[in-house]
Design a binder for these strands. Structure first.
Length: 960
RNA sequence: GGGCCUUUAGCUCAGGUGGUCAGAGCGCACGGCUGAUAACCGUGAGGUCUGUGGUUCGAAUCCACAAAGGCCCA
């Protein structure tokens, strides 16, 4: 059995953590902790796969801290915890990085470069920073199995995704549609609504032209309908005008001309006008107008006024310009009116040749020319730039345009009610996300725009027959005659053809799928389900727990839910913890341009990972922003951890000094009030922490633990100090109690601050046999005893501490320092136990505490400030002791090292010293304590109260 | 335009179901302890709990409206 050894204090947290990491590696602590739960009930966690083509940020540390603490907690509770890592590998972000490195920027250039090589670079790029991710994961103590991490580009993974798409296709929920979607002309692909939901996609105060245009009526000279738009480039594609049948319109005259607009929008007119007549929108229907341009051919029904329910009088003129292909409402209206829709703009965002005057111009560039042309032809009524919110491509920053094109969709709207129901069954932390952010999103659900006209992604497994248009969705490699493990990415997959029943050769559609579908498929695709691991997946779904940042609400959380609902009619997870954003000290978003990005490695090197973790758990409630800086972390969490460390260092020092060792006395109940009190506080804390953690509330649990640690240091230890230096039984009892408390605190904190907790636990429990691994992470989590009434001593101690506070304030007011003993204190209105009175007497440094009886709502305390000569001498002796101790330290003596003391002092002080001689000698380890008339050179001159004193200390060899 | 969140001492934040809930930490001032000491502890000053109405015997706490900030959507 090895004894307890003193430790360094204060502790260097970052260095300690590096040591602990080494220990975990050597001992295989992570693996052992996994083995420990092998027989336990499963606890399923899904890791939201990051893309490793960029460096991790502090917000990743945040999410990982919350993941890790609940996994560690469940593991300590004996559950078998699944901790498989994963990497998201496909998608536009990856392509964009490669494009940058190749200094190219268009699909044509990629095609020229060669898709095979391009995708090969993508595959390499996506693991470029994987080492940094692994390093960070390890450094923050997030136990994750990265060796078996799934990757979304693996053939097995893709095959599972294909299988799922086939299921969806068979149910008729995977279809091709001509729809308007946000479209990035640079990436030349449309974006899904959850890509638009990425932070930063919408940008405020985007300038755009705001033009009000005359549409001249065919049958009424000098009369125009006024329409307003912020996208002049859509005007060449105009097919119709829309009005609200129930809206009130007016016809006004201005000079020679007549203008029609909504009555509520008269404010847009410039200059004098006269209202000539009022009319309902109904009366405008069917009016024919002259097209602004002649690029589009005439067709029945085109260039007329149509009724629409989306027309509002909030802005514009109440008459809406409708370009079939460049607005969702526009497209639907034109299709309902049976109009043929033709594009005026190509996939590259430039005008097609049929738009003769602007052909080849990018749409946004063309705006001023179009405005000028309208002005020249006197069709422009007014042009006034506006600022509004506008969407941009979340990866390449190009302004998006709304553009109709053929895309593949998943009919998520078909399962909307099931999604809402499953969402309601999920325990969200914080709770408001369920019906707020997520609920609202689901209420306004749209079909999922799944396809991407890009290169690096899971190929859409649909083969179409060019002759009979038959369409086949493939659900496995085998269906294609491919052997397992074949690379099925573009361009290889596009070579694979199928024989159609009609005899023609079916070819795959060119698109890949939204990479968000990949990550949403991880519950089954990570296991290559259903080709392998059927039982495993079925047992592991839905997950018990996931956690990601709030930006994933409409990202990964949604895709998980949507796919699980469509494929298995199940929610994908039962509990989800959603931390908010990490922002800088001033509360601003972190951005490279602002230069306020906090580097996670730098932060952790400065403060320690545990401090950062603890800070995340305790600084604010989940759901609020984290205003982070190294200084803030150190000042709160770092200080707290140091306090805990010092408390345990104190125990180690005195246990070592007394030769006390843990073991043997476990389970015995101590008798001293302070011991019983701190153990009751421990019990109370466990009873708070465990239910909180069961409810995924790390915040409350950590706060309760923090109060316990503070109670231990600032009250238990403060009042027990002398007992650690007293008689053997006293030392044993207090060491044993503090040992129990701190060992339990280490267990309680293990899920949150895994490094410090393990170091402290192992310092306190060095282990029975050499080589046998001892780690707090292999211990069970403390559990509350059966609920009972709150022990009375907790209330008594609360009262006692409040009374002590009052008494200290009284001393402060009278300027009587604590070291001056007083005769007594009187507590009125409460009966304290003799033990409690003793504790209070020691805290207040008074001879005795009286409780003359009686009960009061608010008990009070009084102090007897009368100083007797005896008390004064007592105070002098105490002051002398303090000076002696300081001197010992200055001379570099260690505790227990014996000395001989000689002093010269006046009679009054000498009397005080001789009166307390025995006590002084014991406290200061003085073999002798002699008064001299004169001292040789080298004596120290001190002052005790008003009395000068010279002292000489001599070493007496080493302590026994 | 809509949804959600936030607004409590100089700063960062706690304050289930309305009645010692006006708090903590940091900072500041003063002090104590003096073998946890490049540590620890205490005392004190500081807030009409964003504003305005309302419900109530009683509201930081519930309701309505407003303002400011943040996130998200349109």
């Amino acid at each position: 059995m090895s004894g307890l050894k003193p430790v360094q204090s204060p502790v260097d947290l970052p260095a300690l953590e590096e040591d602990v990491l080494g220990f975990w590696d050597r001992e295989g602590t992570f693996q052992r902790s996994q083995e420990r739960g092998r027989e336990g009930e499963r606890f399923v966690f899904y890791e939201g796969p990051p893309t490793a083509n960029g460096l991790p940020g502090v917000h990743h540390v945040l999410a990982r801290a919350f993941k890790d603490c609940f996994l560690r907690y469940q593991q300590m509770r004996g559950r078998r915890v699944e901790r498989r890592g994963g990497w998201d590998t496909h998608g536009l972000p990856v392509e964009l990085e490669v494009e940058r490195s190749l200094r190219i920027g268009s699909k044509q250039e990629i095609e020229q470069f060669g898709v095979e090589e391009f995708n090969r670079l993508c595959r390499a790029s996506v693991v470029e920073y994987i080492d940094d991710w692994e390093r960070l994961t390890r450094r923050i103590g997030f136990w994750l199995d990265l060796k078996t991490a799934y990757r979304t580009y693996d053939s097995e993974y893709i095959e599972s995704v294909w299988w799922s798409l086939k299921q969806i296709h068979e149910r008729g929920w995977l279809f091709r549609g001509f729809r308007v979607a946000p479209y990035c002309p640079r990436c030349q692909t449309s974006l899904s609504s959850h890509e638009l939901a990425q932070p930063g996609a919408y940008r405020d105060d985007t300038p755009d032209p705001g033009v009000t245009v005359r549409f001249r009526l065919r049958d009424r000279p000098r009369t125009s309908l006024l329409a307003w738009t912020t996208t002049p480039w859509t005007l060449p594609g105009n097919l119709a005008l829309a009005v609200g049948p129930e809206i009130d319109y007016v016809e006004v005259s201005q000079g020679e001309e007549r203008l029609i607009l909504a009555r509520a929008r008269l404010g847009v007119l410039v200059g004098e006008y006269r209202v000539e007549r009022e009319l309902r929108g109904q009366e405008l229907l069917g009016l024919r107008y002259q097209p602004l341009f002649d690029y589009l051919p005439e067709q029945p029904g085109a260039f007329t006024v149509l009724p629409a329910d989306f027309v509002s009088t909030e802005e514009g003129t109440g008459i809406v310009h409708t370009a079939g292909a460049y607005g969702e409402d526009d497209l639907r209206l034109c299709q309902e009116a049976g109009l043929q829709i033709r594009h005026t703009v190509g996939l590259d965002g430039r005008f097609l040749p049929l738009v003769r005057d602007f052909a080849g111009l990018a749409v946004k560039e063309a705006d001023p020319y179009i405005i000028a042309e309208l002005e020249r032809r006197q069709l422009l009524y007014r042009s006034q730039p506006i600022l509004h919110t506008y969407p941009f491509c979340w990866r390449c920053d190009t302004p998006l345009i709304y553009y109709a094109l053929d895309s593949w969709f998943i009919r998520t709207t078909a399962v909307k009610e099931r999604l809402l129901g499953h969402n309601r069954s999920v325990h969200w932390v914080p709770a408001h996300i369920r019906d707020g952010r997520m609920g609202n999103w689901l209420e306004s659900l749209q079909d999922w725009n799944l396809s991407r006209a890009r290169y690096w992604g899971t190929p859409l497994p649909i083969w179409v027959c060019p002759s009979c248009q038959r369409e086949r969705c493939v659900g496995s490699l085998e269906e294609l005659g491919l052997s397992p493990g074949t690379d099925v990415h573009k361009p290889f997959i596009d070579e694979v053809t199928l024989m159609c029943d009609c005899g023609a050769e079916m070819r795959r559609v060119p698109e890949v799928i939204d990479c968000w579908y990949d990550s949403g498929a991880m519950p089954f695709a990570q296991w290559h389900y259903p080709f392998e691991n059927r039982g495993r997946f079925e047992a592991d779904h839905p997950a018990d727990f996931i956690s990601e940042g709030v930006d994933q609400t409409r990202g990964w959380f949604y895709t998980l839910l949507a796919e699980s609902t469509m494929l298995f009619d199940l929610p994908a997870f039962r509990n989800v913890v959603v931390p908010s954003l990490v922002v800088d000290e001033q509360g601003r978003k972190m951005s490279k341009s602002r230069g306020n990005v906090v580097d996670p490695f730098e932060l952790i090197t400065a403060t320690g990972a545990d401090a950062v973790r603890w800070w995340f758990y305790t600084t604010v409630s989940v759901g609020l922003e984290y205003r982070i800086s190294a200084q803030r972390v150190t000042e709160t969490a770092g200080r707290f951890l140091n306090l805990l460390w010092n408390t345990h260092a104190f125990l180690l020092r005195y246990a070592a000094l007394a030769g006390w060792e843990p073991g043997g006395e476990e389970g015995t109940a101590p008798s001293h009030l302070l011991d019983r009190w701190i153990l009751a506080r421990l019990e109370e804390t466990v009873a708070e922490a465990v239910p909180a953690l069961d409810a995924y509330d790390a915040n409350s649990a950590c706060r309760a633990i923090a109060v316990l640690v503070e109670d231990t240091s600032t009250w238990y230890l403060r009042r027990s100090r002398e007992r650690f230096k007293g008689a053997a039984e006293e030392v044993a009892e207090s060491c044993s109690t503090l040992h129990r408390v701190l060992s339990s605190v280490a267990c309680l904190m293990a899920p949150f601050t895994p490094f410090v907790a393990d170091a402290i636990f192992r310092n306190l429990n060095p282990g029975a046999a050499p080589g046998e691994p001892v780690s707090v992470h292999l211990r069970p989590y403390p559990l509350p005893a059966a609920a009972g009434p709150r022990p009375a001593l907790l209330a008594e101690m609360e009262l006692l501490r409040r009374l002590a506070e009052e008494a200290r304030a009284l001393r402060e007011q009278r300027r009587v320092p604590l070291r001056q003993p007083l005769g007594g204190a009187t507590v009125r209105g409460a009966q304290l136990s003799p033990e409690a009175r003793q504790v209070l007497a020691e805290e207040l440094n008074v001879g005795r505490v009286l409780c003359p009886g009686g009960e009061a709502e608010r008990p009070t305390v009084e102090l007897d400030f009368e100083l007797t000569p005896e008390l004064i001498r007592d105070g002098l002796a105490r002051s002398f002791a303090r000076q002696l101790q300081a001197l010992r330290r200055r001379l570099g003596l260690v505790p227990g090292e014996p000395v001989a003391v000689e002093y010269r002092a006046d009679d009054e002080l000498a009397e005080a010293i001789s009166e307390h001689r025995a006590q002084l000698q014991e406290q200061c380890f003085a073999r002798s304590l002699e008064r001299r008339a004169a001292l040789p050179e080298g004596a120290e001159t001190l002052a005790v109260g008003d009395h000068p004193i010279s002292v000489r200390l001599q070493r007496q060899g080493r302590p026994a």
